[in-house]
Computed example of a mutant assay.
Amino acid sequence: MAGTALPLVVTTPAQADATDCAVYMASKGYKVGPSVKKACYLAENTVNGTAFCETSLKVMGVRAHHAEEACRRGAR
Score class of each variant (00 low, 15 high):
71 C>F: 07
21 C>A: 08
19 T>Y: 11
1 M>L: 14
12 T>Q: 02
22 A>L: 02
75 A>L: 04
53 C>S: 10
28 K>P: 05
47 V>A: 02
29 G>C: 03
1 M>R: 13
52 F>E: 08
13 P>G: 02
7 P>Q: 15
57 L>V: 07
60 M>D: 01
70 A>E: 10
20 D>N: 12
40 C>V: 00
30 Y>S: 04
49 G>L: 00
70 A>I: 00
50 T>Y: 09
68 E>N: 13
23 V>Y: 05
68 E>Y: 14
3 G>C: 10
68 E>P: 13
10 V>A: 13
37 K>L: 05
18 A>C: 07
65 H>Q: 12
35 S>W: 03
75 A>I: 09
63 R>G: 00
51 A>I: 08
51 A>D: 08
69 E>N: 10
7 P>R: 15
23 V>L: 09
71 C>P: 05
11 T>C: 09
63 R>A: 03
16 A>D: 10
1 M>G: 15
21 C>N: 05
35 S>C: 08
41 Y>E: 11
17 D>K: 10
22 A>R: 01
39 A>D: 00
64 A>D: 03
26 A>F: 08
42 L>S: 02
55 T>K: 07
43 A>T: 07
15 Q>V: 15
2 A>R: 09
23 V>I: 08
2 A>F: 14
12 T>K: 01
55 T>S: 12
24 Y>H: 06
73 R>N: 11
49 G>Q: 00
15 Q>G: 11
15 Q>K: 14
30 Y>H: 11
31 K>V: 12
42 L>Q: 09
56 S>T: 01
15 Q>N: 11
73 R>C: 05
37 K>I: 09
15 Q>H: 11
10 V>L: 13
5 A>S: 15
47 V>K: 00
74 G>K: 12
64 A>M: 10
53 C>Y: 04
67 A>W: 08
10 V>F: 09
23 V>M: 02
16 A>N: 13
3 G>D: 12
38 K>T: 02
11 T>A: 10
14 A>P: 11
45 N>P: 05
18 A>H: 06
24 Y>K: 09
8 L>I: 15
62 V>C: 06
71 C>R: 01
67 A>D: 02
35 S>Q: 09
65 H>N: 10
